[in-house]
């Protein structure tokens, strides 16, 4: 009881809900130690949280400040919002075209990867063929292949394909989209297979008994049921596509084809020569971070679950 009282100042609201956790602390000899440790722990955790939140706020405020101001006082607040940082970044910094490229590449590749992975994940999840476990293993192994292993071969293969087909692959958004779809397959199949496995088989059987064909069952019954899984897969594809840097850096060489991460790198390189435009740089960072932040605030639980739940299996 004593224990509960010493703890109540910072954890009072949680006390009723967390009652079981406090049961063990009744042991008289040990009452102070966990409380002090716990308190120190909590303080550290809240400091960490404060630091992370500070970074976001600092990023936004800095993007609205005058560059000379930033250089003089890195932690200050904007006196008046300098929206021109964003217009400079958008127009002369090349972030405008890069943002459009990023949105197109990310959305198209994410839609394609889910559209291609979903049927495959479905048959792998539901099929009882022996071959299926081999294929499942193939996709899982793909998860472990570091991107750099594929970098040179894929680059050369795309260049050769471009020569043969006269379709623009290197230094083009369509080429990047194809690469992002290809690279995203293992994770998306893995994620969706786990999801399809959890769907009850009875519903499909009912559909089959009612005379629904396999493809109709899949499109009209399984897919709608799996909607939340598909949305999660799509979101995760969007996030990884939005952040893709290694292949974009190698493939996209001219300003009009850059995606946001590459534009950010180019902006950094430029500031080597023109002096650092901190305001513009932070405006660019805001462009890179905000969409992900918005997605996270909107669908955070789903994203977190998608990235963590399938793992424990």
């Amino acid at each position: 009881m004593n224990q509960v009282l010493t703890q109540s100042p910072e954890s009072a609201p949680a006390a009723p809900a967390q009652a079981p956790a406090q049961v063990p602390m009744r042991k008289p000899g040990r009452k102070t130690r966990p409380s002090v440790g716990g308190m120190v722990g909590r303080v550290i955790v809240w400091l960490l949280v404060a630091f992370n939140l500070f970074l976001v706020v600092w990023m936004v405020t800095t993007s609205l400040r005058d560059t000379r101001d930033i250089a003089r006082e890195p932690l200050g607040l904007p006196l008046a919002p300098h929206w021109e940082n964003f217009t400079t970044a958008w127009n002369t910094g090349g972030f405008g075209i890069a943002a459009i490229n990023s949105v197109v590449a990310t959305l198209v590749s994410s839609l394609l990867v889910v559209a291609i992975a979903a049927p495959a994940a479905y048959v792998l999840a539901k099929s009882t063929r022996r071959l299926s476990s081999t294929f499942t293993l193939l996709f899982v192994l793909g998860l472990g292949v570091p991107g750099q292993v594929l970098l040179v071969p894929i680059y050369v293969m795309l260049a050769k394909f471009q020569d043969l087909s006269h379709l623009k692959m290197i230094n083009s958004i369509q080429g990047l989209i194809i690469v992002m779809v290809g690279l995203g397959i293992p994770f998306t199949v893995f994620l969706l297979a786990g999801f399809f496995r959890s769907l009850p088989v009875e519903i499909e059987e009912a559909a089959a008994i009612d005379g629904s064909s396999g493809i109709r069952t899949f499109v009209q019954i399984v897919l709608p049921l799996a909607r939340s899984g598909l949305v999660t897969a799509f979101m995760l594809a969007v996030i990884s596509g939005w952040n893709e840097t290694l292949f974009s850096l190698v493939m996209l060489t001219t300003a009009e084809n850059r995606t946001l991460p590459i534009a950010l790198l180019a902006f950094l390189d430029q500031s080597q020569f023109n002096g650092a435009d901190w305001g513009g740089l932070f405006a660019g960072i805001v462009l890179v971070v905000t969409p992900v932040l918005a997605l996270f605030i909107w669908l955070g639980r789903r994203i977190v679950e998608g990235m963590t739940v399938g793992i424990s299996k």
């Binding site: 048959v123 193939l138 594929l150 290809g182």
Partner: peptide, 26 residues
């Protein structure tokens, strides 16, 4: 039975990409 009929058409696109972007490049 209908699952078996759909097995390859549904699996093949992903499998081909897997071959093209992982197996062959390695």
């Amino acid at each position: 039975r209908s699952r078996r009929r759909l097995y390859w058409p549904m699996l093949l696109p992903a499998l081909l990409l897997m071959l093209l972007f992982y197996v062959v490049p390695i």
